[in-house]
Design a protein around this nucleic acid. Structure first.
Length: 555
DNA sequence: GATCCTTTGAAGAAC
DNA sequence: GTTCTTCAAAGGATC
């Protein structure tokens, strides 16, 4: 199970060799080539196209072309050095020395002149961090944080939910703002703002507790017993946590008494159905709170997605229907996906989530172990919090909530007839290619091959099912049904499926074509050295279908 | 409007 | 212990 050592991740990189982020030799070779980025891009594109057109002729050129997929590696290196230096300086500053969780990106505090000036004991920078990471941290004292210099944009305050974050913004984004690209110092998201503009008067006001977290399913008495998932940081910061009365309390707004980070986690993530609605389930603006009008379960058209308080008073619902749907806590990849999706979408003309997810999946594997560790840790905390909030909840509870997925019928029925799979005819992009410049901040988007996820992350689980080990995400799963296991000392075993996915057998590998030219080269991160090794070991297999856009023939 | 697709990871069931 | 299945998010595509 990919859980980080709760001890704080000191072992994240202790014993494992750190594969060089960038192969110097490779870079030198690349420099010597002195090929322009555009040409590289063209090469990559044509290579990919050729691969899909002609499977047989691409294999040996692929390895050579790999390095060319990073035409901006030099600038990336510079950027990386810059941030490394920034990190070093920041750490030298003593503010965040020796973080318990090295994976947490203390280096990504983008703006130490954040308008949210503390009136407390924290230095502005520290306060900035807290405000950014745990926007609700100062909720109880938010009235005292008012700073006329940082008026919250009204349009944001009014529409951006406090608990349910805006579209494409991960609800935990404030918690996992690993990149300053997510943070615009000038326009802090309203949910980070200590105050909210009254939509009518425009006067900043203290957020109503119900807006901060309008729902908590916890019994008041249970709240106090919950250990703060992020207490390590709270304590480290010397920031007093919200004092939760031992033995519980009877606060009209339990969320107010919940510590902040938990509040943000809970309020943004977990279903409102679990919670006794606040006295008013409408947002103070009168607009239904986005979190309350949660998407819930699409497959539950029975009205469960409406807050109980908003339902018609007619209680003629079965208990089953009333049974709240508690969603699973997000795993690390999901957290990553939520945060990075917008980026990928912004950089790419692709709109299909399936395609985006493929890119994200590949990038996920390209993340360094530290980067992944951040998400593993967040996911772990989410699970921890989830288990604390819903002690009796089991993932099994959600089984069957969705309509049965099609693949359930797949094993013996081929998908003909209804919903015939679109043949993955390669289509050359008519749309503008994804030519958005890669991030220049050394973000994950540009991350060159680094130790693969499974390899890199100490928390990475051994791939237990075939779907979980697809190191070359955009590739076709070759025929057959084999799994090759790779293991390194101290590394989780990695299963590289050389066959169809068990749960998706008979399924086209790529049921929809992905226009390669819509993929920025940086999105097609080259496989990690480990992946390359794996790839090499199965060269012949992958050679036959290196980057196929051809639908795997159904059987 | 409902479902599929696609990704990885977690959890549970089944073997 | 291993394998398999389901669900979590997202949104365009498809039925």
């Amino acid at each position: 199970m990919p859980q980080l050592n709760g001890g704080g991740g000191d072992d994240l990189g202790a014993n494992d060799e750190m594969i060089p982020f960038k192969d110097e030799g490779e870079q030198e070779e690349k420099i010597s080539e002195n090929v322009s980025a555009e040409r590289d891009l063209d090469d990559v594109k044509s290579s990919l196209v050729n691969e899909s057109e002609n499977n047989s002729s691409s294999s040996d050129s692929e390895a050579e072309r790999r390095p060319q997929t990073r035409p901006d590696s030099e600038s990336y290196e510079k950027t990386r050095d810059y941030f490394s230096e920034a990190l070093r300086r920041q750490q030298d500053g003593g503010l965040f020395k020796s973080p318990h969780y090295p994976g947490y990106p203390f280096l990504m505090i983008p703006d130490l002149t954040n308008p949210y000036i503390s009136n407390g004991s924290l230095s502005p920078s520290a306060r900035t961090y807290l405000q950014m990471k745990w926007p609700l941290l100062d909720v109880p004292t938010s009235a005292g944080i008012k700073d006329s210099r940082s008026p919250t944009p009204g349009h944001l305050s009014n529409k951006v939910p406090v608990v349910q974050h805006a579209h494409h913004v991960h609800p935990l984004t404030p918690l996992i703002t690993y990149s300053n690209e997510h943070f615009s110092p000038g326009t802090p998201p309203s949910h980070l703002s200590p105050e909210i503009l009254d939509p009518k008067t425009g006067i900043p006001r203290t957020p109503h507790p119900s807006e901060l977290s309008p729902y908590y399913p916890l019994s008041p008495g249970a709240v106090g017993s919950i250990a703060h998932p992020l207490s390590w940081f709270m304590q480290q910061q010397g920031q007093p946590m919200y004092s939760i009365p031992p033995g519980g309390f009877r606060h009209p707004y339990p969320a107010l008494a919940m510590n902040a980070s938990m509040s943000s986690l809970v309020s943004s993530r977990f279903s409102p159905h679990m919670v006794t609605p606040p006295p008013h389930s409408l947002h103070q603006t009168g607009i239904p709170h986005p979190a309350i009008v949660s998407p819930a379960i699409k497959q539950e058209p029975s009205g469960d997605n409406i807050s109980p308080s908003m339902k018609s008073p007619v209680p003629a619902k079965k208990d089953e229907d009333k049974k709240p749907h508690i969603k699973k806590p997000l795993n690390a990849f999901m957290l990553y996906m939520k945060e990075m999706r917008a980026k990928v979408v912004a950089e790419c003309t692709l709109k299909e989530s399936a395609a985006i997810n493929q890119i994200l999946g590949r990038r996920w594997h390209s993340l360094s172990r530290e980067e992944q560790a951040k998400y593993y840790e967040l996911a772990r905390k989410e699970r921890q919090l989830h288990s604390q909030l819903y002690p009796g909840w089991s993932a099994r509870d959600n089984y069957g909530k969705r309509k049965k997925r099609k693949r359930e019928n797949k094993p013996d029925s081929k998908p003909e007839g209804k919903r015939t799979k679109k043949q993955c005819v390669q289509y050359l992009p008519s749309e503008k290619m994804c030519d958005s410049p890669a991030s220049s901040h050394g973000s994950m988007l540009d991350s060159p091959a680094t130790p693969s996820a499974a390899l890199a992350s100490p928390a990475a689980p051994a791939a237990t099912h075939s779907e979980q080990a697809q190191p070359l995400s955009l590739t076709t799963k070759p025929e057959g049904r084999m799994q090759h296991h790779f293991s390194l000392p101290g590394k989780p075993t990695i299963s590289i499926p050389i066959g169809t996915s068990s749960s998706q057998s008979n399924t086209p590998i790529l049921t929809r074509p992905i226009p390669f030219t819509s993929l920025h080269p940086s999105m097609l991160s080259p496989p990690s050295p480990f992946h390359q090794a794996a790839l090499h070991s199965h060269h012949s297999l992958f050679q036959s279908q290196p980057l196929s856009l051809v639908t795997k023939p159904t059987e």
